[in-house]
Design a protein around this nucleic acid. Structure first.
Lengths: 123, 123, 123, 123
DNA sequence: GTGGTCTAGACCACC
DNA sequence: GTGGTCTAGACCACG
């Protein structure tokens, strides 16, 4: 459901936060739904539970998740709204990556090709 | 000639490496050409000479530059070939970014928009 | 476990790299094993941690080590394969030294004597 | 007649000095013979004349060469004796290289192989 | 605790 | 002037 890139300079907890926000943005997780548990996610992503816990904690701070004592985390009602901020920053990050690729010598046709290829992969 | 983004999670020395590889990929620097000196680049980019030196050293390890003691650094004959690897990895990085953006909930139309916007910016 | 020759023209970090590759080549360190920490090695070898860190970083660039943030460095699965390259290059370096010795006027009997002497020393 | 390894950590001028001492040790250059000129050597080795000049200067300081104003450098009568010191240090360097190779994981059979191979190459 | 990055400054060797 | 190495110390991010 989620995947991480361990060799990325982007911290794992940020990747996890982005991934969880994405699940909501894509409608796979709706307000009121129970989020996966910290421990199960940690196992699945092969990551230290602390790292997942940190991502959750920050999502709670953002008002994206709500925690019910002894009962796990739930997607908050505000999550959909918040996820738009997430989308905006995802867009910004993509723009950065595009500019970086251009700086490294990639032509626009290469960019188009990469996009097409990514679309193919998703099928 | 090169530009850095200090607020990026990508380390400065990596940005410098990518930038130099880009200069070759774009033909602004050809095999046999003398690369800018470590010190001059450091001044120009306003970073510590050590940071630039590190980038250079790693490009030498990659066989991208050659260095003549007391003289300077030169683009190696193999650099063009290597720069293709560089392009390939730049492409891979872009692909990663695309997939990440998708994971975070961006739609393909958002992606296209980001591409168009990046093209506009360049003019 | 490792030893350095501070009066050698070979940079410390290169000696450290060679030494670590040697540990793998000799089977004292296997793929998946955790490598000694940068800091502990630095203390043990009495060099600046940065120097060790540099060696590690370059071994990571070579695909010899893998690094898990906040955890430590691990011998990569590819390390055995790479260590063969390491052995090859160690062999090349030895060949260079032999040719240099010959160029400097050493006879083959002197070479044999040096080899015999090195064997003695190891006992 | 002489060859250099530009990618060695050993300074070029040292390599040049060792090479010249070797020519005497091997009898290709005898006391009283005129040494090659700085300029011709520089051209031949593709090295800055200053570098060759430095090697010569230091060999003169060692009493290995003698300089006759306006007439080049000549191998001194003491050169043969001095070249033995050169041989001793060449032997030491070879021993160092052997120990380094062992530390890097080379087995004795690899060492023998390297020696045999170097002998082959010379024919 | 782990590794990683960057800065600063000293020193060396070579051209 | 060039590149190269090493030290020192600060700071960050991660577990």
């Amino acid at each position: 459901m989620l995947s991480l890139d361990v060799s990325s300079p982007v911290p794992l907890n940020e990747q996890i936060k982005a991934g969880l926000r994405g699940l909501v943005a894509k409608g796979l997780l709706k307000p009121g739904d129970q989020a996966p548990s910290v421990r199960s996610l940690a196992v699945q992503l092969k990551v230290n539970p602390n790292t997942v816990a940190r991502a959750f904690r920050e999502l709670v701070l953002e008002g994206f998740f709500e925690t019910r004592r002894g009962d796990g985390s739930y997607v908050s009602e505000e999550a959909l709204k918040r996820s738009r901020h997430g989308l905006a920053s995802a867009g910004r990050r993509l723009g950065d990556a595009l500019r970086a690729a251009r700086r490294e010598g990639l032509g626009w046709s290469d960019v188009e090709k990469a996009v097409r290829q990514a679309r193919e992969e998703e099928r």
